[in-house]
Simulated scan of single mutants.
Amino acid sequence: MTAAARRGTTVVSERAVRKIAERAAVEAAQAGGRPATDTAKGSASVRGRRADVALEVALPCQAALSDSVRRLQSHVSARTEELTGLHVDTPRVGVTALLPARPGWSVPVPGAPVPTGRTPLRWWSPRRVPAGLLTLAGTVLCGALALDLVLVHLAHRPAAPWRTESVHWLTGHGSGDPVVRVVAAGLAVLGVLMIFLALSPGRRGLLTVSSSDPRVRAAVDRAAVALLVRDAVGDVPGIGPVRVRVGRRRATVRARLAFGERESARDAVREAARGVLDSCELRRPLRLRVRVRPDDSWESTGAGPSPVPDQQAEGDLS
């Protein structure tokens, strides 16, 4: 009787897991009448029977962002586990863009309380570039020193000239030497910079979003918020060119008025901008500043006296 052959092992590559997760994210974004996004970028790592997935997708701007992220995470996790047989932890989701509204979307109920979760005010940055440069420098220096020591003690070769010359130079120069002081000052500045990078959150371009689920952490790019505010303000009657700047704590809207009353136009601009900011459900609400200037060809539609053309209509709200 012939013995049974040894069974093989099926290995699912990280690339295959990433492709499946990206496709599942697209399926989740296209479900339920939401806008069709054609691409989703992701990364995956496989350790044994477990997989870790991270995704970057575009989501609708007027849907509840925390609910959309939860549905996407659930679908991606279930779909990837079904097709690969691996246990997939809760995927990390980054929202790269907010797509414009379409009929049939679910929008927040006006006046509804904004859910508060444990989302931090700022996201921490992995600092890949500084960490990579520091690791590379440390690897080169420590590797060269270790290789020279191995060659000296095991192969009985003379020490490398750069090491002997460095030791001789250090023995002849004390702490009062100008070169030593300059190098020490440079190292001190480098150490302070490393401490600053370790303690500062980074990712200044992201604004965190409130979530009712503490397991969901979402953020939106400040440029995307500025684009949404600009589009909403541009739809106000009489408003011409619009410039929007969104900072970490304040949103500034500068608009030019082509026709109409400046006071009513300023109120309409302020209302449109505030509505967009409230719909984003930011963890830290932004202060809004509105500036409306008349255009060169501006004409008032009111019966009252026209104000001086170079005056500005401004508003600064918290």
Rank of each mutant, 00 (worst) to 15 (best):
R217C: 04
R204N: 01
T208W: 02
W298Q: 12
P158G: 12
A146N: 04
A218E: 02
F196E: 10
L121I: 02
T301D: 08
E81M: 15
D177S: 14
V292F: 05
P241V: 03
V69M: 10
V276Y: 07
R7E: 14
V88R: 07
A25H: 03
R204A: 08
D52E: 12
P91V: 08
V129Q: 07
C61K: 11
R127W: 04
A63P: 00
P60S: 10
A198C: 11
E314G: 05
A64I: 11
P305M: 06
D295S: 15
V57P: 02
P158V: 02
R283L: 05
H153T: 10
G247A: 05
E271N: 05
P294G: 12
M194C: 11
R215D: 13
D316F: 10
L227M: 05
R245W: 02
W105I: 11
L257N: 03
R256T: 14
D89E: 14
A31Y: 00
A144Q: 09
A112H: 05
V93W: 04
A51T: 06
V57L: 06
T252G: 01
L170H: 07
T171Q: 08
M1K: 05
D38H: 07
A63L: 03
H156T: 05
R163F: 15
C61V: 12
E281V: 09
A28P: 04
R217P: 00
R157A: 13
D267C: 01
D231Q: 12
A160D: 06
R254L: 09
R203G: 01
T96R: 12
T9A: 14
A25G: 15
R181A: 11
A137S: 11
V246C: 11
V53Q: 06
R47Y: 07
L59E: 02
P100H: 09
S166M: 04
R70G: 00
A44F: 02
G302Y: 00
V180Q: 10
P120T: 03
S66L: 04
V308W: 12
P214C: 06
S66I: 00
T301E: 09
L317D: 13
A184W: 01
E81L: 06
V12F: 06
A97T: 01
T135I: 09
L317W: 15
G176D: 15
